[in-house]
Design a protein around this nucleic acid. Sequence first.
DNA 1: ATTAGGG
DNA 2: CCCTAAT
Length: 639
Amino acid sequence: MENRPPTIEFEDETIDVERLLVEPQDGNVPLDSVMCFNEKTSEKATDIREVSCSFGATSAGTAHEEGDILNRDVLNSLHTEDDGGYFRLQNDFCSMGEEYLLENCCIGYAGVGFAESITDLEYVSSECLQISVSDSPVLTCAGIDSPWKSDLFKIMEVPECQNDVVDLKSYEFSEIPSPQHESEKLAEKKPLKSPQESIDKVHDVSRHYFDDVPSDENATSLSHPVEMFSCPKDEKNDEYGPAGQSGESNRIQGKDELVTLLSAESPSDALPMLKRSRKPTKRYIDEVVDPISRHSKRRREVSSSTVRDKYVGVKDLKKCHMGSKAMKLPAEESAVKAIQVPFGLLVHKECPESPAYKLVNSSDKRILMNKPKDNCVASKNQKKRDECTPVVHQMKRSDGTPAGSQKKDDNVSGAHLMKKDQYITNIHLTKRNESVMATSQKKKEKDLNGGPLMKSDDCLTAPSQKIKERSMFAGSPKKEDECATAICQKKRDEFPTVESPEEVSGRRKHHRLWTNAEVKKLIDGVAEYGVGRWSRIKKIYFPASAHRTSVDLKDKWRNLLKASGLQGQHKEQGEKKRNIAWRPLPKSILRRVCELAEMHPYPKGGKPTTAHIRHVSPDKSTDITLSDYRRILRSINGS
DNA sequence: ATTAGGG
DNA sequence: CCCTAAT
């Protein structure tokens, strides 16, 4: 974690806020038109570097001056207004990884200073998030009154963010040149001298950004970073939707909540109150979140938490402030520390263990959920998450091995690493993690089967599942014909939650269900090369499948023979039936197996293969199967 | 390394 | 499937 300590410098009376603007590849054309805040204000104000996702202030408030406009509104307006370069941010955002954006936004808002290039997002992100979170509420509240509404932010640069890599090239503070606003700003800014004040100031600034942000991006990022990411375009409303309220109403609620968190200030008062209110909020949060504080460490890991997390994070953050002692955050240095604290989401995710924690989280989440966040994703994610969490617990327990805890960590970390997007987005992630975990376990248990391939088929591997599958097959042979994979998916869908635990506990042995296609191939291979040349068959017919070793082929063949009942050479009837019961092999396959078996009985007697087949082939009358066999073979091949 | 066979 | 033994 390379962090650059969030640097907030306060210079005498001037506040210099730098924003990190992500530049669109295109360039910073707008810059010229827009004044660089740094340059302008550097003298005046504290120097706050913000890494903004690239929010530039657009021309003065313009339509946004309304300030109170909900983020959504803002966004919408932006869309409509979208000036060529300035607002392209949204689009970019969309493309950008959510995490990245969030982080950036958070950072920017937080006022954390980052070097021009930020390589390590994680660290930043966590801190930033915290900061942003902490600030965001305030900002939101402030938005109402925000004097700076008029300020224009332009998006100087839109960073190209790749999901994983956040490359912030240049962060520039783009401030609105509008003199009027500036004057206002200055007036306000000047007063700040003491660090504390300066900090407050920063917050104010952030607020301004939020409220004022003319561009959707700004507003969104500030107030609802998540939303932006998740639903960059028009979906914001939808996000709120889960709550069932209109975006505005939601937002209002969010504010209210925030206020409540802060200290139950009325939204209207928020602006002035905000600063003060914070403390109350913290306490409030602390009380609520308290249990979570324990998990602070973990939180940090999770830092990449999603937007939703952020919201939650606010609480946590504050709480953290209280209990921040534990936190090791590098940022501790100054007032900033407090900001850094929040890794609420992480905690939630991480601490499935304690029921209390869990409850708290869930409750918090729900509460938060109502707010802005991206509901669309959130609802899903949450659901998944909830499921996942319990699952994890189960896993641990079931495993009983020390690995349990580790695994958990791994999952978390893995998720974290994977990217915040996923994390946030995440259901998939969770599932993946589970699967991954399962896989890892598998590996631990044994590594024989090919790892990579297994993934897709893993579900099959799970013993329990397998069993189910088999039973199902028995019931209806047809299914077997279908791809095992399909079945697996099906199962998953049916028991998403259950599955993971099962897998974990059940331990999927390497069993991989043989799909019909595989069986066919095997048969073909046998037909081609005869019994015994498993390695060859494997090579030719199962080149891609890492699993399915020659031994496996052999075993399978053996099983097929057994199933077909031919092995013994006779008594098909009774045996066959039984076999069928065992496995729903498709009749066609069964027949072929029988034919082949007859053609070349398993080696003991020796005789193999093609030669034999050829030999037989002449004898059409004798071997009904031969012609049939070939025909089938072809059909199979074709299929 | 493959194959056969038992578990 | 896994493992071992025999080639």
